[in-house]
Design a protein around this nucleic acid. Structure first.
Lengths: 298, 298
DNA sequence: ATCTACTGATAAGGCTTCCTTATCACCATT
DNA sequence: AATGGTGATAAGGAAGCCTTATCAGTAGAT
């Protein structure tokens, strides 16, 4: 049977060899000298060869045998290998390193995550982050395929995603977006019926109103623009108004304002999606915790 | 402080991961299942991260966490590294491997060592041997410089070599070498004076007679040949006789014979030279032991 | 030459670690 | 509901490791 070395034991050996003495090694190991003696003896027994020259006899200095000399570099390498792994794992556990992948719907990706991530990666220069943005179903798919550690998406079709866990975080309320000089801009909140007299531009999120009493508005809109950049441009040009979830509207817009719909109140929950039976990597878990701490109270 | 892993513990982890179960791993480790549970838990505590998915709860299969998956290959590599070293050292300790260097004077090198080494390297195909032959002082020098593990040389100038240990093994007696059909070939032993009537060829070893009563013979010789091949050829050609140590004479010569000098008996001791304060590598020690066992009784 | 200061080895006891047996809680079968 | 599988847990004991105290040997100083 092959002997099994203990890392501690190898360390003792290396220290005795390099410091040329049992006492010096004992001090370095924070052990007493007999402990080191026994440790070395145990190692020698395992190898059935002495590592140090006959030390009970006449000679003065603690010196390696040729066998010990052959062993020394190997022992050092093994210790270094061990320490490298130990350090790697510790760094990963402290989410100071590793690779974190996440996917998010564009609204959160652009409105919320940038500053959040900026703060999160502070002090963790070796943490690599891959970031994908796509619509909710694509996010769910990426979580499912384990292309990402977790996703940020809307809660939907729960029965189809029983293998996933959804943690709600943000509530994205639908509201009206119009230029700041538009008559509707005066209001603090709006009833859907008040939109009927204005030119309403439909967009990809308009179908969120389908299940509400505001459904008639959808037929009401003469224009439909799927692209967000174009939509914003049209609004800024004073072409009309639209409905959008709050997080889809540029936060600090100079020209547009957002007025929440009070009737009906349509809210879509956005949150974190993970696989139920899979833990997160430490960095991913840390980011989730960070997001929760930062965004939930708000 | 960085955690310190035990190889055994890592093995347990790898086995649980690969055999997908604590019971299976326990069997492989020749331990009970609770032992494995505790071992894994200890490892998880050291890492402060779980390695396997929550296993008290609903799920069936024992599955790694992403963190565990990251750790698995590293743990395997470290175990393999450890085992490689363990095996290397064991092979070396059993002198099945390694590099053995020795130096010897030519007589022993050519007359004794070949068959001895042939037998010694039997069953040790991975043991490399480097072999040097040179005169005694060169052998001593190589031992001193640690160019060789040990040397085979004559005992001489003990006071100059207090740092070396000499183990006498062979006794190389000076005798007369002549063709088998030479008149002297009849004798079982010879007195030095009987050589005075024959043509005596001097050689490198003739000075060994300097300290004996046979000293007059040295002046007596008309020829001096330092090269052994030429010397043998001259002898075979019937040119004359010479004195040589026994081991310098080809053992199974068809044409020459060796008659020991009875007066004076000049013997030079040949043996193993090692550094006193240095142990031998296991293969070197094994060869020394082997030589002693084989050659001393003879 | 003896004394002192150093080396590391050794012995006995205690503490810690690890493993064992016995049992439990949980889930998936039957 | 009963059975057989998973792994977790508790308590006791064995083994390993470290400690203090002491010893033996060498080197250098007086």
């Amino acid at each position: 049977m092959l002997p099994e070395f203990k890392i501690t034991q190898l360390r003792h050996f290396v220290w005795v060899a390099e410091l040329k003495g049992f006492h010096a090694a004992a001090e370095k190991a924070h052990r007493t000298q007999p402990a080191i003696s026994l440790s070395i003896r145990d190692l020698e027994n395992k190898l059935s060869e002495s590592l140090f020259e006959k030390r009970n006899a006449k000679t003065a200095k603690t010196e390696l045998t040729p066998f010990g000399e052959y062993f020394l570099p190997k022992a050092k390498e093994l210790i270094e290998h061990h320490d490298r792994i130990s350090e790697d794992m510790t760094l990963l556990a402290e989410h100071k390193t590793g690779h974190l992948r996440l996917a998010s719907v564009p609204s959160i990706a652009s409105q919320v995550l940038p500053e959040l991530l900026l703060e999160f990666v502070n002090n963790t220069p070796d943490l690599h982050i891959s970031f994908f943005d796509d619509n909710s179903s694509a996010v769910y798919r990426m979580v499912e395929n384990q292309q990402v550690d977790f996703g940020i998406a809307h809660l939907f079709h729960e029965q189809e995603h029983s293998d996933k866990t959804f943690i709600p975080i943000w509530e994205d309320q639908i509201g009206v977006v119009c230029p700041k000089d538009h008559p509707l801009a005066e209001f603090k909140e709006l009833h859907w019926k008040e939109l009927r007299n204005h030119r309403l531009i439909g967009n990809g999120t308009s179908r969120l109103l389908e299940d509400s009493e505001a459904r008639p508005l959808i037929g009401h809109s003469q224009f439909y623009i799927s692209n967000m950049i174009s939509l914003i441009a049209m609004l800024e040009a004073g072409f009309g108004v639209t409905t959008l979830p709050r997080y889809a509207v540029p936060k600090e817009s100079e020209t547009l304002c957002f007025i929440p719909l009070s009737t009906p109140v349509v809210v879509r929950r956005i949150g974190i999606v993970t696989l139920t039976n899979r833990s997160l990597t430490p960095p991913a878990q840390a980011l989730v915790d960070f997001i929760l701490a930062r965004s939930r109270p708000a």
